[in-house]
Nucleic acid binder design. Structure first.
Lengths: 134, 134
DNA sequence: CTATTATATCCGCATATCCGAATGTTGAGG
DNA sequence: CCTCAACATTCGGATATGCGGATATAATAG
């Protein structure tokens, strides 16, 4: 269980709030997050590492991809904060735009590059991983 | 209404969490906070100014004293976050110690120096101000 | 007016944070 | 083995933050 200051510090950044907002819709690989956020990959990875160290997200490797998912709904503090945050962000235009971009990306197939590397020979990475416990 | 990042940034500091925890028990003047926190006055004032700019507290002057009070229960995000935070801090020993110190300080008269300056001639500053709307 | 008390703000200074570019690492394919 | 793609980490620099001491402001008492 992380200290409350670590939780709030992790959420005290706009890019990380955008990530949390997106992961609230289901787990995502880094490249898709990068696509939606429009930021350099090192930045996305760094923010994800910070969220992970704060206990807010967990990562799971699947081949070349690493999928991140929200994982803090089990501690009461994080659950309360994330619930309040989710309700609030639903009313903010910027975050809604991100959610829309995610929907569009999912429609034309998540992991925007996967079709280049997986010519329909393999089941392709799962979009909604069953469980995360890291 | 402050941006969510400002709210979380304001809460991403241990001293400020201690202040919020204390103010959740009612409004307090700076000198009493300083007494309980055991930190230099400039530090307490600086943290209070930051909390104020984040919209979490309001100040009200009464003679020489300035009383601070939590004031963010009106926005849904802040209310949700503060509620979750209050429940969480109730279980952390350090913050409970602060609450105990506040109780003791109230027993022997809040505003620990007031009796030196108010020899029972004036009603003395109120401990629980009726309403704050800053 | 002066003195005193409470609080706010300023000043360096140390440290932390954020960023993008560059480099490392890992896993799949050939 | 080598190559490539996804991701992680490191690097250097700009900016932000937290801190205590010093100083400024505000209000009250005399």
């Amino acid at each position: 269980m992380t200290a409350p200051t670590a939780l709030f510090r992790a959420l005290a950044d706009r890019t990380r709030l955008r990530i949390v907002n997106l992961l609230a819709r289901g787990s995502l690989c880094v490249c898709d997050l990068q696509q939606i956020l429009g930021q350099p990959q090192s930045s996305v990875s760094r923010h994800l590492a910070l969220l992970k160290s704060a206990g807010l997200v967990a990562d799971r490797r699947d081949g070349l991809w690493v999928f991140y998912a929200l994982t803090a709904w089990d501690t009461p503090l994080a659950r309360g904060v994330l619930a309040a945050l989710r309700d609030h962000l639903a009313g903010e235009a910027d975050y809604r735009r991100d959610a829309d971009a995610l929907s569009r990306l999912r429609l034309r197939g998540a992991c925007h590059l996967e079709r280049r590397r997986r010519p329909a020979s393999r089941p392709a990475p799962r979009r909604a991983p069953a469980r995360l416990e890291a």
